[in-house]
C-alpha cells in the first residue's frame, strides 16, 4: 500500500459518491450515460468474482463491496426509479457500447496472466474499464451544458486511474512489481480523458461553464 494507491481509491470512491449525490439530490441523471454505468457494473462483477474465493482483505474487500453496491444502485436508479429514469438522455446516449464488450472479451481470451476463468475475466474487466468511459464522453460532447457535479464526477473518475499509474510507477521502483496488463490498459484509459482534462481545467481556470467541442 502506498499514498498514490490510497489517494487513487479514495478518488474513485469520491467520484461514485458525487454521482450518487447528484442523482439523489437533483433526482436527475441528465448528462449521465447509462451505457457507461452498465459497463462499470460489468467491470466490477467480472473483476470482483474473487471476493469469496480469495482471502478477505480489510482494505480491498470493503471497497469491492461498495463499488459493486453503488454501481448497481446507480444503474437501478437510472433504469427503474420513476422520477430519475425520466431525466435520462436516452436519445443522446447513443454510443454502441456492446461493440466494446466483444473486443475486450476476445483480447482477454488471448492476453491474460493465466488462462483460468478468474484471470480471463479479470483481464476482461481491466480492458473494459479502459474504454467504459467512452459513452459518457460522447454524451458530454452532445450535452449543451454540463452541470458541475457531472463534470466533477468524470474528472475524479479519470484522476483515479492517473493516480494508479503513479502507484504502479512507485511499485515498479520500490517493490519491483511489473504488471503489463493494467499498466497498458491504465495508460489507454487515462489517455482517453486527456481532452476532457484539458477542457475541464480550462473551464475551471477561466471560471466558465464546462463545454466540450
Amino acid at each position: 500500500m502506498n499514498a498514490f494507491r490510497l489517494l487513487a481509491d479514495l478518488t474513485h470512491l469520491l467520484s461514485i459518491i458525487i454521482l450518487l449525490v447528484k442523482i439523489r439530490t437533483t433526482k436527475s441523471c441528465a448528462g449521465i450515460s447509462l451505457k457507461t454505468q452498465d459497463l462499470y457494473v460489468l467491470v466490477f462483477i467480472s473483476r470482483y468474482l474473487d471476493l469469496f474465493t480469495r482471502p478477505l482483505s480489510l482494505y480491498n474487500t470493503p471497497f469491492k463491496l461498495v463499488f459493486l453496491a453503488t454501481s448497481i444502485t446507480i444503474v437501478y436508479y437510472m433504469r427503474y426509479h420513476k422520477v430519475v429514469k425520466q431525466t435520462y438522455n436516452k436519445d443522446s446516449d447513443t454510443f454502441k457500447h456492446y461493440f466494446l464488450i466483444l473486443p475486450c472479451a476476445v483480447l482477454a481470451f488471448f492476453i491474460n496472466p493465466k488462462f483460468t476463468f478468474i484471470e480471463v475475466l479479470w483481464s476482461f474487466s481491466i480492458y473494459l474499464e479502459a474504454v467504459a468511459i467512452l459513452p459518457q464522453l460522447v454524451l458530454l460532447q452532445s450535452s449543451s451544458n454540463i452541470d458541475n457535479l457531472t463534470g466533477n464526477y468524470v474528472f475524479m473518475l479519470g484522476a483515479y486511474r492517473a493516480l494508479y499509474l503513479l502507484n504502479w510507477i512507485y511499485r515498479f521502483f520500490a517493490e519491483d512489481v511489473v504488471r503489463w496488463i493494467p499498466w497498458i490498459a491504465g495508460l489507454v484509459q487515462t489517455a482517453l480523458y486527456a481532452d476532457f482534462f484539458y477542457y475541464y481545467i480550462k473551464s475551471w481556470r477561466n471560471n466558465e461553464r464546462l463545454k466540450l467541442p
Binding site: R5, D9, H12, D50, R54, S57, N60, F63, K64, F67, P113, K114, E119, W122, Y164, N167, V177, V178, R179, W180, I181, P182
Partner: peptide
C-alpha cells in the same frame, strides 16, 4: 509465469 500476479489491487 512472470505475468501472474496476486490481485492485491482494486
Amino acid at each position: 509465469e512472470c505475468l501472474y500476479q496476486p490481485k492485491d489491487e482494486l
